[in-house]
């Protein structure tokens, strides 16, 4: 690793931290914009149902809502960095505990789904480009158009009805077979915990329950990757260096999958974080439909119960995960593309 690359990574990390601070501030300010007075804010914090004046005052005091805005923002930021996301009014537990429970489950869905959609997208995109305008290309286009353009809940419902209710191949709802005993919570990630406990049955049951949601999220997000891969493959395949590769006597197939795909995959990396965001947004709907109790399900629960603390907390946690994904993508980009480091 050379020093330019290290500098690049450091700069990107600083950017990531700055972005994070910005996000927290923005989210906090947005809420203030819609609930300008401390009392209104306290009502948002308290959630639905009747809250007495003294309870509201207690909330104002607890969250220091009377302080000047910049102080509140700083306060909020420092709370977040201390892992304090507030106290959930409907679960009566600290928010961070709830998120700590639900986030790993969602990551277990989203990360495989992301891999699935990346691979599917890269492959179908490259395939479509190499078969440009022929039947194969049209089929690829048809498939990604339909999955992209269908409302996310339709895709999920279709998978559920078809594979679970009609064919009985996979479970329709839930996180795991409820009859099974939960292994000891060590990492928070159910799959890992099952492995650590050596509980194979539990592990398999988890996987069984994961398949449909993972496929659903993957299908919802691969279209954008296919589309960009195809487009940038076509650009690369018209480039002089691709043609010089052929000119040297490399076979077209090899040139397509090494020279063109290698170059075309560089812009795809920048999509990684975006796709991760899509996948998380997809998880909201998918988890709701499959009653998979992860972050997405939790958000929907929070919406129906107007549990604002929960929504705020999840939003920020999701932003943090996406910023991390973004940072990873940036670094990968720097490694993949020799031209980046000099910028």
């Amino acid at each position: 690793m050379n020093s330019a690359l290290i500098l690049y990574i450091i700069r990107r990390t600083i950017y990531a931290v700055v972005s994070l601070l910005f996000i927290i501030t923005i989210v906090y300010l947005l809420i203030h914009a819609v609930a300008p007075s401390p009392l209104a804010l306290a009502k948002v914090y308290a959630g639905p149902g009747h809250t007495s004046k003294s309870q509201l005052l207690a909330i104002i005091k607890e969250y220091d809502l009377n302080a000047p805005l910049p102080n509140q923002v700083l306060n909020y930021i420092s709370n977040i960095f201390h892992g304090n996301l507030g106290f959930d009014p409907s679960f009566h537990r600290p928010e961070i505990d709830l998120i700590g429970r639900y986030l790993p489950r969602t990551l277990e869905l989203v990360i495989p789904a992301l891999l699935f959609s990346m691979l599917l997208g890269l492959y179908t995109g490259a395939f479509g480009a190499s078969k440009r305008r022929k039947a194969g290309d049209q089929v690829v286009k048809g498939v990604y158009l339909v999955t992209w353009a269908s409302p996310p809940f339709l895709v999920a419902i279709f998978l559920q009805v078809f594979f679970a209710y009609d064919l009985h191949l996979l479970p329709a709802t839930g996180l795991v077979n409820p009859v099974l005993l939960t292994p000891k919570d060590v990492t928070g990630f159910p799959l890992l915990d099952a492995l650590i406990a050596g509980d194979f049955t539990y592990f398999v049951s988890l996987i069984h329950h994961m398949i449909l949601p993972v496929v659903a999220i993957g299908l919802l997000s691969f279209g954008i990757i296919t589309r960009l891969t195809r487009a940038s493959m076509l650009d690369t395949m018209e480039s002089e260096y691709f043609k010089l590769g052929l000119m040297k006597g490399i076979s077209r197939k090899r040139a397509v999958y090494t020279v063109a795909l290698r170059n075309a995959s560089i812009p795809i990396v920048t999509l990684l974080a975006l796709t991760f965001g899509y996948a998380v947004a997809g998880a909201v709907v998918v988890e709701d439909i499959f009653s998979y109790h992860g972050m997405g399900w939790f958000i929907v629960y929070a919406i129906t119960n107007l549990d604002y603390i929960a929504i705020l907390g999840t939003t920020i946690i999701i932003a943090i995960s996406i910023i991390i994904a973004n940072l990873a993508a940036d670094i990968l980009y720097g490694v993949l593309d020799p031209r980046v480091k000099l910028e």
Binding site: Y241, L244, G249, N263, D337
Partner: peptide
């Protein structure tokens, strides 16, 4: 080995990665 062409536009002729 039978036929080879040096393209007109040199700048883009080598694989950038």
């Amino acid at each position: 080995t039978e036929v080879f062409m040096i393209f007109q536009n040199p700048l883009n002729s080598l694989n950038p990665v």
